[in-house]
Design a protein around this nucleic acid. Structure first.
Lengths: 287, 287
DNA sequence: ATCGATCACGAAAATAATTTTCGGAATGGT
DNA sequence: ACCATTCCGAAAATTATTTTCGTGATCGAT
């Protein structure tokens, strides 16, 4: 359990003094992470022993242990609690984009529903044929990535961003096939319809979407990804990165479930690339 | 400057005693980040003052400052120096994939060539028409993402993963147009050919690829992304995530260069989505 | 070879930080 | 009103860190 989840969980149960300490952590992380116990105590208007007790309560052994935890978690976790203003300098924008992406990964990982993703991996690894659906730019990229990752493991898969085609493909799918669809908003009604259709015919369905959404409701297995959209509309959504990495996790789990076949397929692909390019096999597997 | 870059830069210039301290940091980070100065000193076979001097040398004010720096940087930076073995448990795989992605982002950001990316942004923001090229699954995804991000800003852009079509499009491109291409390996010869063709006609070319590669050599402006491929062939490459976020940075910079137009376009897109879906405008901009 | 300068390093002292102990005050239940 | 419990800080005890200073090693110049 990381410190910031803990802080949020415990926040209401803290006493007034401890609450003041918690507020400083959230509001002035830079100060807190550099402060000594006396400095932090003084700023919070409490005594050092209170800070020590606070640290213990947060599951740490000592103040220094606490500071380490704080520094580790907060490097990526802090933005969740405290979105920072951004400047227009190129360096700041780059930093901001990277931090938002890292933060999205952090949150996605923290909230990851492992049993769900394992169930999805089981289904997909055993599928006769896989249909990966998604529309709208982001989800269509995700559907494409599913194809890109899974064909390498020797699975039969096709991706589509065309909702009319999706419906036809769903109608053509058979029991033993699996339909996996992505929707950042969870409100892609056409995708939900394709899910319903597939389920009627006994085709398993997996959704990569917001929990408690129409798309999630229409699927057999949902891998929930719930992230708030960043406030700056010019800034591309970091959520995509979280989805992409969720696909990576899924693909990795599927790979472990079908190693012999996957190895053989990957070997053939790699050899093709090496022969086709110039023999440098340290290159990524596919451009 | 982060601590681990510093460590690498200074490593050879360190004395024997300080070298032993550095080794412990790299080889047993978990120990180091939790140790007291005496514990660390003892393990390194040196005296506490030596550790203090070492910390100062690394640009920190004190031992505690050093520990904070260590804890912050290492959360994502450590894997660069010390790739960890992985287990097959689902939780470990998820953790590993996320960490590799975060690490790739960290490294990409650290090595980012800001002037190059700004030059690319200038070119693209002023383009009459943009052609985004890439093949091989990963780079074709990146080309698609360029289109997905940039059309939202009101730019005219098309993406293609078809190398024959790419060549024809390059031939059709005019001065004032910009061709941007991605290649993880830098060895996509067809892409390099399209670049050469475009340049002959006065069309500007931007490459998103490994530096010192044929593709980089063929482009006017290169945004270099140099990351080593992860050793586990089953594991999808984290490099893709770095490319994707590099595209985000580029798109964000372009957005600042054309705000009025971008705002208008984004508004229209968002409105379309809100009308088409069910009016919840906290949803991501595009599924 | 010898001298002087410089550097690395640790012992011990000085300082600072952290934790423990203990008791007073406040709160709430009986 | 009384007891139990919780919260919290003062002071003491402990522990950690930094400074000071002296020794020994190394290196270049004479």
């Amino acid at each position: 359990m990381d410190l910031f989840s803990m802080l949020q969980d415990e926040r209401t149960r803290l006493s007034a003094s401890e609450g003041r300490i918690a507020d400083i952590l959230v509001n002035d992380y830079e100060f807190a992470v550099n402060a000594s116990i006396t400095g932090l105590a003084e700023r919070a208007g409490v005594s050092p022993p209170t800070v020590t007790r606070f640290c213990r309560r947060m599951g740490c052994d000592s103040y220094s242990d606490f500071k380490v935890q704080l520094a580790r978690t907060a490097y990526v976790g802090i933005r969740y609690l405290r979105p920072e203003p951004q400047s227009h300098a190129a360096g700041d924008i780059a930093k901001d984009v990277v931090e938002q992406a890292q933060n999205a990964l952090f949150l996605m990982h923290r909230a990851l529903d492992l049993p769900a993703i394992e169930r999805a991996a089981d289904l997909l690894a055993g599928a006769e044929m896989i249909y990966a659906f998604g529309s709208g730019g982001n989800s269509s990229m995700i559907a494409g990535e599913l194809q890109n990752r899974l064909f390498r493991l020797g699975l039969r898969i096709t991706a589509s961003a065309d909702h009319a085609l999706q419906l036809m493909m769903a109608a053509a799918a058979r029991p033993g096939d699996v339909l996996i669809g992505s929707s950042l908003s969870g409100r892609n009604a056409e995708l939900a319809r394709a899910f319903s259709l597939a389920r009627q015919q006994g085709t398993a369905t997996v959704a990569l979407t917001q929990s408690a959404s129409p798309v999630a409701a229409a699927a057999d297995v949902t891998i929930p990804i719930d992230l708030a959209e960043a406030p700056n509309i010019y800034r591309p959504t970091a959520t995509r990165v979280a989805y992409l990495v969720a696909v990576d996790i899924l693909a990795s789990l599927i790979a472990t479930r079908m190693q012999p076949q996957a190895t053989a397929t990957l070997r053939r692909i790699k050899q093709q690339l090496v022969v086709h390019r110039d023999g440098d096999d340290r290159q990524p597997l596919g451009d």
